[in-house]
Design a binder for these strands. Structure first.
Lengths: 188, 188
DNA sequence: GGAGTTCATCCTACTAGTAGGTAGAATATG
DNA sequence: CATATTCTACCTACTAGTAGGATGAACTCC
């Protein structure tokens, strides 16, 4: 892992723990063991650093969307992998929150360029989910009560709400319980 | 409205917009039109001020719990009032988020005393909701698929998740849509 | 192949500005 | 008078960001 990657990684962890306004270059410098000023060589501003963190997550989502466009995939399996990913993150407490979720809370006070990336993250994520649900319904894997768009919004509400409630109640298992029920409701 | 109340009110608005780490005494001083140092007379520390904000919300919840204990109440109506309150807050953009929800996101980085009040807020809120659901099920107003505790956790997940998604997607109507569906699922 | 040059990286030392908080005097208010 | 409230003035610690230099690896050119 090169320096830039280390900076992104530690910034990600810090944002998840404390939010954008809750961490500083000094914190990152301590973790990566580099001088504060050196961070500016890689990321001129704090917003740039945070943007890089979100863009890293975004690239994963975009890769998934590309897989979808490529054709053959199993919608139910894709949704399962997505849910399992977060269940694992939260139950093991390694990055127990989505960085875009934390930043979304702070959206009105974020630098405009960073806010844009966060909004793009949710736009792309919901587009991916909508496609998965549409394709899954066509294959009789899912039973949608409303439009794919509505169902995607509801499902993301559950995912992000459950992250927040797991944190509020100090109970990582809450996530798996609540999300598991939502998946069950979606399945035929 | 006396000075302390003004301070609490503006701190509430600022926390909702920017989070605990995103506002300062200088911001509050600007809004209330008072010197920064004068705030310390009413609230010695920033944590004290934020605690007062959460405790104000908490007292409303506790009043509701007391109403429940007193006996006669209509569970379905109580839930309707709760949901309508937030729908109004979010659609009119006057305090479009629950202050405890914002602070819950920041929980790991909050001063311990403040974190305690936030956790108490969620403990009391879920207790209230659990009672409402239990009583409503007894009166055949609600149909619970799991335990009242599980249903309360799921419902709060929807409420707080929908607040977050409404902010992330910049669409206040998302809240009413998603929460409305959750209420429908609960109703007989 | 050696000399000069460019470039990325990281450093020390610094800036202006803001953070939360304090001391003590001035001013209201009962 | 006494108490509550607000003020000016200040403090220390920290913020993001900058200036300018040291190091060393890679590239060019004769």
């Amino acid at each position: 892992m090169n320096t830039a990657e280390k900076l992104i990684s530690s910034a990600r962890t810090l944002i998840i723990e404390r939010g954008y306004h809750g961490f500083s270059y000094a914190d990152v410098a301590d973790v990566v063991n580099i001088r504060k000023a050196s961070i500016h060589h890689h990321f001129p501003t704090k917003s740039d650093l945070a943007q890089a963190v979100v863009e890293q997550s975004l690239s994963v989502i975009r890769a998934q969307i590309a897989t979808l466009a490529a054709g053959a995939f199993d919608p139910k399996e894709q949704l399962g992998v997505y849910v399992a990913y977060w269940e694992r993150c939260i139950s093991t407490s390694t990055d127990p929150f989505c960085v875009a979720g934390i930043l979304a809370t702070e959206l009105p006070s974020l630098p405009p360029a960073l806010a844009d990336v966060v909004r793009t993250h949710f736009a792309d994520l919901s587009q991916w989910l909508e496609t998965v649900l549409t394709q899954g319904a066509a294959k009789q894997q899912f039973l949608l009560k409303g439009s794919a768009r509505q169902e995607a919004e509801s499902f993301l509400t559950t995912i992000y709400g459950a992250m927040l409630m797991a944190r509020a109640f100090g109970n990582p298992r809450l996530f798996a319980n609540v999300v598991g029920e939502a998946v069950g409701r979606l399945s035929v």
